[in-house]
């Protein structure tokens, strides 16, 4: 009797997330699709100008899509080497005592609020980048990538670390028995054995970075142009939604266009998550 009750209670908890997900998906489609009555899908995705509040408006989000992709790929250049490197060190090389300190430290990075990262980027890193590279302005794709990379680092590191620790000890022992050195064992046996988990870590890191909003709003500069260099201000999809949703009157074209952007973002992250899932399962 009680077992059954608990079982049903937990079942409803689990199905609640499905309900939420379904609700979000339905809302996205319901509010996002109407924009395609005003602009064609092609013009929306490949339009070069975003002037939603002018008359006549322009709803081209190509600069925003490219802005998001550039910033996110840049973030992966930072997060992947650092994340996988620290995962390898923590799980294979670090003294157990050191591991006890390092692992929570890396995970602590994830708990810093994004607005703090944004403030740090705006006040410290931006001006530094500007002086270092002699740029007109320091709020650039490059600056945002570094900060986002730091933010995605814990995701990449902790999932990669799980994957590496999950490699059976027998594999390592067999490798040593064949006379392999520690370094050879790590690079030729452990990492290849954990590769699907590491790739999943990279993809989830990608998802973490492309969805980040506050930091890129503060640090990326916000210029809605097609990026030609990483040392140029860019605007991401998330920053656009966050900055403009408050002003867009409900039911207006601008409002539907913002949901349209959210829809594009939804498909991108969904695609990558499915990919990560597939890779993990093999």
């Amino acid at each position: 009797m009680r077992d059954n009750l608990v079982k049903h209670l937990l079942l409803s908890c689990a199905s609640l997330s499905i309900v939420f997900l379904a609700g979000i998906t339905v809302t996205l489609f319901k509010e996002g699709l109407p924009i395609f009555k005003e602009v064609s899908v092609f013009k929306f995705l490949f339009g070069r100008y975003w002037y939603p509040t002018y008359d006549p408006p322009d709803f081209g989000i190509l600069p925003l899509i490219l802005g998001s992709l550039w910033v996110t790929l840049g973030a992966l250049f930072v997060a992947v080497p650092l994340g996988v490197g620290s995962a390898m060190y923590i799980s294979e090389l670090a003294h157990p005592k050191l591991r006890e300190i390092l692992k929570p430290m890396v995970e602590l990075l994830a708990s810093v609020p994004s607005v703090v990262y944004g403030f740090f980027g705006m006040v410290f890193l931006g001006p530094l980048v500007q002086r270092l590279f002699d740029l007109p302005v320091g709020l650039t794709c490059f600056t945002a990538s570094i900060i986002l990379g730091m933010m995605a680092l814990p995701t990449v590191a902790s999932i990669a670390e799980d994957a590496i620790s999950a490699v059976p000890r027998e594999l390592r022992e067999a490798s040593y028995a064949l006379g392999a050195m520690k370094w050879e064992t790590i690079t030729k046996v452990v990492v290849p054995a954990a590769s699907s988990g590491i790739i999943a870590a990279v993809i989830l890191g990608f998802g973490r970075a492309i969805g980040e909003t506050m930091t890129v709003l503060m640090v990326a500069g916000g210029a809605a142009v097609i990026p030609r260099s990483v040392f140029q201000p860019v605007r991401t999809m998330t920053a656009t939604i966050a900055a403009e949703m408050g002003e867009a009157p409900m039911g207006s074209d601008h409002y539907h266009a913002l949901f349209g952007i959210a829809l594009v973002l939804f498909f991108i992250t969904l695609g990558f998550n499915l990919l990560a899932d597939k890779i993990i399962k093999g």
């Binding site: 100008y49 975003w50 002037y51 600069p63 705006m122 006040v123 931006g126 001006p127 500007q130 007109p136 302005v137 320091g138 709020l139 709003l217 503060m218 500069g221 916000g222 210029a223 809605a224 142009v225 140029q232 201000p233 605007r235 966050a242 900055a243």
Partner: peptide, 21 residues
């Protein structure tokens, strides 16, 4: 279109204060 878009008065003031051009 390539103008920087910042989200508050303070952000504009901070950025101008740190950007010579």
């Amino acid at each position: 279109p390539d103008a920087l878009m910042l989200a508050s008065n303070k952000a504009v003031a901070t950025t101008v204060a740190k950007t010579p051009g």
